[in-house]
C-alpha cells in the first residue's frame, strides 16, 4: 500500500521550533538567530551589541560551536549569562539543541536572547530554531558575491549586517552590489554597515533590534 505523507522532512524540527518560540513569547523573551561564516565577526558584534543594550535590556547568549568554549568565555567575561552548545561535528544548530540550551537559562531574567549559530552559510539556512529574527552577518573581506553564491541563508534572513566596514578601503567589496542582491532575496530586510571593534554602526543596529522587540 501507499501511504501519502506530504509533509516537510524537517517537520520535527519545525514543530520544536514553534514550541521554542511559544516558550519565548510566554516569557517575554525576544530571540535572534545570528548566522554567518566563521570569522565574519559574530562574537565581536555580540560584544558591541551588549555594550549598547546592557542599560535597557537583559541579554543572554547561546553559543553554537563545533568544539570549545572560546566564544562563551568571551561573553562570560562581560557578565552575560551564556550557554555553550558543542555540536561535536554538526555544521548547524537545530531546534532540539536550542531547546536543551534554553532549559539551562532562567528566562524570567532575560529580555533578549541572541543565539550565535555555528559559522556556516549553508547548513544553518534550513533549521528554524524558534527565533523571532534571523540576522546574517557578512564581513567586508568575504566578498560581495556571497548573496548570489549562498542565496538560501540571505533569503530567509530579516536583516543583513555588513561587518568590518573599516576594511572596505582595502577590498573591492561593493556595498551597492550586495545591497541590490539582498533586495532581490529579501526586499524588506534592512542592510546595516558596522565596524564592531570601533563600535561604528553598531548603535543603529542595537536600536533596530530593540525596536523590533517592541513590535512583538
Amino acid at each position: 500500500m501507499k501511504l501519502i505523507a506530504a509533509k516537510s522532512i524537517l517537520k520535527a524540527n519545525d514543530q520544536l521550533a514553534v514550541e521554542n518560540r511559544q516558550r519565548f513569547d510566554a516569557a517575554g523573551v525576544f530571540c535572534v538567530n545570528m548566522v554567518g561564516s566563521p570569522g565574519c565577526g559574530k562574537t565581536t558584534l555580540l560584544e558591541a551589541l551588549f555594550s549598547h543594550l546592557r542599560g535597557s535590556l537583559r541579554l543572554a547568549v547561546i553559543e553554537g560551536d563545533i568544539a570549545g568554549s572560546i566564544d562563551a568565555e568571551r561573553m562570560e567575561a562581560l557578565g552575560v549569562p551564556v550557554v555553550q552548545i558543542n555540536t561535536e561535528g554538526a555544521c548547524h544548530l537545530d531546534a532540539n539543541m536550542t531547546a536543551s540550551a534554553v532549559a539551562q537559562l532562567d528566562l524570567t531574567d532575560v529580555d533578549l536572547l541572541i543565539i550565535e549559530n555555528v559559522g556556516n552559510l549553508v547548513c544553518t539556512a534550513g533549521f528554524d530554531l524558534g527565533e523571532h529574527l534571523r540576522i546574517v552577518v557578512l564581513g567586508a573581506t568575504e566578498g560581495d558575491d556571497k548573496a548570489v553564491k549562498y542565496p538560501a541563508i540571505f533569503q530567509g534572513s530579516n536583516a543583513l549586517v555588513i561587518s568590518k566596514t573599516d576594511m572596505l578601503p582595502y577590498t573591492n567589496f561593493s556595498i551597492p552590489r550586495i545591497t541590490a542582491d539582498m533586495k532581490r532575496l529579501a526586499p524588506d530586510a534592512p542592510v546595516f554597515q558596522v565596524a564592531a571593534l570601533k563600535r561604528e554602526g553598531t548603535p543603529k543596529l542595537a536600536e533596530w533590534i530593540a525596536e523590533e522587540k517592541t513590535k512583538r
Binding site: K2, L3, V148, D181, K183
Partner: peptide, 30 residues
C-alpha cells in the same frame, strides 16, 4: 535556475520565489 535574478520580461529586480524550496516526504510504499 538561480535566485538572484531580474524579471526576464520587465527587468524588475523585485521577484518572489514561489516554488523550488520544497523538502517533502511525499509518500511511503509499504
Amino acid at each position: 535556475t538561480e535566485m538572484v535574478i531580474d524579471c526576464p520580461l520587465c527587468g524588475s529586480p523585485e521577484i518572489a520565489i514561489e516554488k523550488g524550496r520544497e523538502l517533502l516526504l511525499e509518500s511511503i510504499d509499504i
